[in-house]
Simulated assay, not measured.
Amino acid sequence: MSLSRREFVQASVALLSAPAFIGQARAQAKEFRLGLITPTGHSWNRAAVAFGETLKKETNGRLSATAFHSGQLGNEAAMMQQLQTGALDMGWIQAAELGSRVPGIASINAPYLVRATTDVAKLVRHDAALRLLDLLPRETGTVGLGWGITGMRVVFSTKDITGAKDIKGMKLRINPTPVYRDFYQQLGAAPTPIPTPQVFDAMANGQVDGLEADIEFSWNQRFDKVAKAMLQMNALFMPFAPLVSGRIWQRFDAKDKELIRGLTRQSLDAQIKDIVTTELALIEKFKAAPFPIRTEPGLEVTALVRDFDKLWLPKAPQIAELRKVGAAL
């Protein structure tokens, strides 16, 4: 039986289209490799695992995510490079790393936007904070899906400390983001960046006089064992953003993108609630250690904010809007 020319062309088109269709179907099935620097017990990691499990359940296994914790895929700078090339699918990355690349993102690390963890939870859900993520695709080739949080950061000192005035002259291990550097230099500290795994020993041997960190991380690392006191600064917090590689994101249709966004926000809501509800319990654990916890007795922050904003508003004008939002919470 011979084919007409029309029948031959139709059959050829169908044959050529089949591999493309099959390839498209295969592209829709995906296991995301998700990198983050926090350890298994950390709330960020728990939320990432929950996201992967829920994604797998909601798609009957077509989509899933495996979390690689504790920097198994490299530090955050390395993971950002992998996200940009598409070698890594997802990364849950601190605002500090993002702000070092995109000054506008650094605005969310500015001091005294809010003064309590409950207000951090509200701020990161506000449109003003979420709009910061719109800067990422063009500047980093990644897509931000929302914000998660840590609690307000505290200062651990190897000498007794009663207020911010005692920070002057301290060799203080900080997160190396320029925002934190400038703030602690305003207070008279000598910011000293040290890799996280080395901080405990650096405090024990006198290499640094203290560090600033969030409560959850500090309890997990038991910095109270090498410090004399903790100061609750109520000045800074460190959010993180779940990112997807732009090269990976473009492969998915609108329905899958909506699903991934929704499930990510769901896991972030749980993570934020986790921090808000457990932070007070962790503080009580420090007290029961026992370990002295100092509360800043009433630092006048107006001048600090003015001097900081004079330096940073030209680079990150979004700070002004975030301050208005924070003041209204």
Rank of each mutant, 00 (worst) to 15 (best):
D269K: 06
F183T: 01
V102E: 02
A189N: 07
L236D: 01
L187G: 10
K171E: 07
A320Y: 03
F183W: 04
R125F: 07
A289V: 13
A129F: 04
R101H: 10
A14V: 11
A320C: 03
P137D: 11
A121F: 10
D134V: 11
P193C: 01
K30I: 09
P317E: 02
Q81F: 08
E97Q: 13
K30T: 12
E53W: 06
P103A: 05
I275Q: 09
T38M: 13
M152V: 01
L83F: 10
I174D: 03
K315M: 01
R5E: 06
R173W: 05
V154Q: 10
A202L: 04
L135P: 07
T295E: 12
E58W: 07
G151E: 02
Q318R: 14
T54S: 09
R62A: 09
I275H: 06
G144K: 05
K273N: 06
F240P: 05
G91R: 09
V114N: 00
F8K: 15
G148K: 04
A213S: 15
V226K: 04
D182I: 10
P195G: 01
G141Q: 08
L268R: 05
E321A: 15
A328M: 08
R101L: 06
N75H: 11
F183R: 01
L15N: 02
W312G: 03
L36P: 14
M238Q: 13
E212Y: 15
I272V: 06
S107C: 04
V124M: 13
R181E: 15
R46Q: 15
R261W: 04
K255Q: 14
I272D: 00
L329W: 02
V120S: 04
L329E: 01
Y112C: 04
K56P: 02
T264F: 13
P111W: 03
K273C: 00
A106C: 08
V305W: 11
K165V: 05
H42W: 03
G141K: 10
G74T: 07
P195F: 01
H126M: 10
K273W: 00
L172T: 02
P242N: 02
D307A: 15
G206F: 02
F223V: 11
K315G: 00
V124Q: 12
D182T: 12
A289Y: 13
Q207H: 13
K273M: 00
E296T: 07
A14C: 07
K287Y: 11
V325R: 03
A14D: 06
L136R: 05
A29D: 12
R247V: 14
M80E: 00
D127I: 08
S64M: 02
G148D: 06
